[in-house]
Nucleic acid binder design. Structure first.
Lengths: 134, 134
DNA sequence: AGCTCATTCAACCGATCGGTTGACCACGCG
DNA sequence: CGCGTGGTCAACCGATCGGTTGAATGAGCT
């Protein structure tokens, strides 16, 4: 019963889980240390001055976010970093980063144009609506 | 200059703020919409069925994380997306993504070697099992 | 069978979060 | 001048979070 089917949430909710998981410094540190290789809960818990249970909870959060997977090795539960999730984040970030930079460049051009001429009919790169995520 | 100098937190804390800010779907959506151009609080609040105050709070969180900046235009406070913060995230992510992938590849090689030692006849079928969850 | 180590479950606690409502401030305009 | 508009501040509320302690489960070792 410990292993439910794990429904794999849809990407938006997944993003929430991932970002939320990485919002905690301890959890980020755990991820960082896991890049050096798999580790057990006790090994991971050792450097921090919190209880093992607390670290176990952290790992659960990382697991729910899909950042970490675990196997069984006797009574140990080694944690393994899942590199795949990073792509999800990178995709999200890159999309908007690029859009933002493009816009910035465009605005820059507009400003230059406005500067070159004097008072063009364009009021401001006003925007309001538009932009749909998903 | 409505408030204190805004000390600009050190990068680790900053990362926490950024990830935490993006952990909320509404806030992510606001960011997404801001890539289409600056917008006021009321404009941003319009699509959601929450109060304007709630959206104002969301924007404050994004601002504290350095994801958006604001200027004054009469009584309006247009929000502007700050593209720079994305770099911070991308750097963090890329670092560990690459490390994780390298490690994966290395492990793969080790496994192959172990396999070869045991069963040398087959000259490496070369079916690098890639990550299925992506 | 016991014992011990590794991990998790369960209950609890204070702090923070996302949301509300109501009052308040800062403009610009008639 | 008063008033409406855009936005924020303040207090409050339920839910969740990160942490604790204490007890339970699971798997090896004599």
């Amino acid at each position: 019963m410990t292993s439910a089917p794990q429904p794999v949430p849809e990407p938006d909710q997944r993003l929430s889980l991932v970002f939320s998981a990485l919002a905690d410094p301890t959890r980020r540190d755990i991820v960082a240390r896991l890049t050096a290789g798999d580790a057990t809960v006790n090994e991971l818990a050792e450097p921090y001055d919190v209880s093992v249970q607390a670290v176990s909870k952290h790992i659960r959060v990382l697991e729910d976010a899909g950042l970490v997977s675990r196997t069984r090795d006797a009574q140990r539960r080694p944690c393994h970093l899942e590199a795949g999730v990073f792509d999800l984040m990178t995709k999200w970030i890159e999309r908007y980063r690029r859009a933002a930079e493009d816009r910035y460049r465009r605005l820059d051009a507009v400003l230059e144009q406005m500067d070159a001429q004097d008072a063009p009919p364009v009021p401001t790169p006003r925007t309001t609506k538009e932009a749909d995520a998903s």
